[in-house]
Each structure stands twice: as structure tokens, then as C-alpha cells.
Amino acid sequence: MAATASRSEAVKKLQRREAWRRRIPLLPALLFTIVVTQVPFLFSLWYSLTEWKIVPPEPRQFVGVDNYVDLFDSRFFREAVWTSILMTVFAVLLSVILGTLIALLLDRKFFGQGFVRTLLITPFLIMPVVAGLVWKNQMYSATFGVFNWVIEGLGFDRIEFVSRWPLWSIVIVLVWQWTPFMMLIILAGLQGQSASVLEAARVDGASPRATFFQITLPHLRPYLELGVLLGSIYLIQVFDHVAVITGGGPGSTNVPYFVFQRSIGGGWQFGLASAYSIVVVVASIIIATFGLRVLSGLLEGEDPA
């Protein structure tokens, strides 16, 4: 009896020590992340309940949920939300589709394969600010742009792309930059496909088309999901491209840029801007829940001891 008791005590002590031994390596990253990402969030929550303009400095006043009431009344905020949704959805979908097609094109032997792949990944490596400036001034521009040179050469009138289609001007640059990223992920997926399964399909007499839709595509599914997930995480936060290409022109102000405009970008209404960002966070959490469900799909069945 006594022996059993001392054993169960020893086991408990051991398990506690083991649990801590497992936790310790995690702690620096966890604490750092909590301090840098969660603490500001709590501050935001507090600011959002106040009326607070710091340029020109005014005393902070507690106003409860007034800011939230205001922002839901704001047509501009609703427009910014809508712009964000359009921008993210179009950019993610187009870059995933294009990235998949290009990956399929690259996943076969042809002369200069490695070189073409190198050309294709380059846009992803380009600094977003540079990408925006190059496209705006050297592609879209009515005066200097290559596009308009071609259009004029074909006998049409020059077009001010950016002011005519502000949202699409941004989406195209985003797609240009993120297609290579999607392509890399899909390419890795294609290369991870077992050759014997494909051979079996061919022996079974499946057409290339059937092979693609019934074997390759299901195999690529987790890779596509990963691409959509990572793409969404980064694309919903797009700021640089908006700032550089349209500077928040009509129809292209997404939520990040909107919050910036109302606060450090010149509005200096920190209370109201904080309320905006809290709403964005809540919305992001809702979207993230879906995203994380995708993620848990990716982690399914994997359970290291």
C-alpha cells in the first residue's frame, strides 16, 4: 500500500517535471508574442471606448460604445470593408488559379525549365513598394506606361488605368506578386505526387483529364488550402500597394488603409480608429476560425507523442 502511494507520488512529480521540461522551450516565443501582439490589442480595446484626438492634443474622454455606433453608421467604413473583401477574394482566387495552371505547366520537362521557374518566382521577391511604383509609373501610367504605348500603337486612346479601375489596378499587382508564391506551393505538391499512383492510373486506362481531376486535384487539395490560407493572411493586410498605387483613391481604400487615414495618416482620431481596428479584429477572428478549421484539416491525423 505504502509502496503504491509513494510510486503514484513519484509519478506525479515526474509528470510535472516532464510537463515543464516540455513547456520551457516554448516560453520565450510564447511570452514574446503575447507581449508584442496581445498587449497592444488590450490597449486598443481601451482606446476604442474613448474619445481621443491627439493632434491637436485633447484630453481623453470615456465615451463607452459611441465610437462603435458611429462607425457602423459610417458609409466610408462599410465601403472600406467591402473593398477589403473584394481585394482579398479576387487576389487570392486569381493567384491560386493562375499559380496552379503555371505549376502544371512547369511540372514537365522542357528546355530551360529551371530558368523559366527563376523568372516566375521573381515577382514574389520584389519589395511591395517597388512593385507598386513600377506598375504604377512604368506599366499603368498614361504618360510613361508600356500598356498605354501598346494601346496607342493599336490605334486606341490612352487610358488612365489607376483612376479608372483603382481596385483592379491594385488586384493585378497583388496577383502578379502572389501567383509565384502559389505556384511554388502547388509545384511542391505536384512533385510530392507518387509516380506509381499516376502510372497505375495510366495502366487502368484513365485519360489525362480524368487523372488530373480524380487523382492530382484531390492530392493537391491540402496544398491549395495552405495557399489560400497563407495568401489570405497576408493579402487581407495589404497596405503598401494601396499607399503607393492609389494612395487610397475612391474604391480602393481597404480597411488597413482606412484605419491609417483616420489616425496616424492625418485624422489623429485614435479613439475612433481603435474602434475600427477592434471591429477588424473581431471580423478577422471570425474569418480566422474558418481558416483554422482548414488548418486543423491540414494537421489531422498527425499526433506526435
Binding site: F41, F43, I233, P256, A273, L292, L295, S296
Partner: peptide
Amino acid sequence: VLFFFISTKFLPIVAAILPLWII
């Protein structure tokens, strides 16, 4: 824990920029 780390990437940086600026 992994979800927590990833979820911080879902939080828009703009939401943190104001307090970060003040801090």
C-alpha cells in the same frame, strides 16, 4: 498553442499600430 501563434497573423497590424505608436 500553434493555433494561437498562427492566429496572431490574422490580427491586422493596423489594429496594433495605434497602441504600438503610443507605447
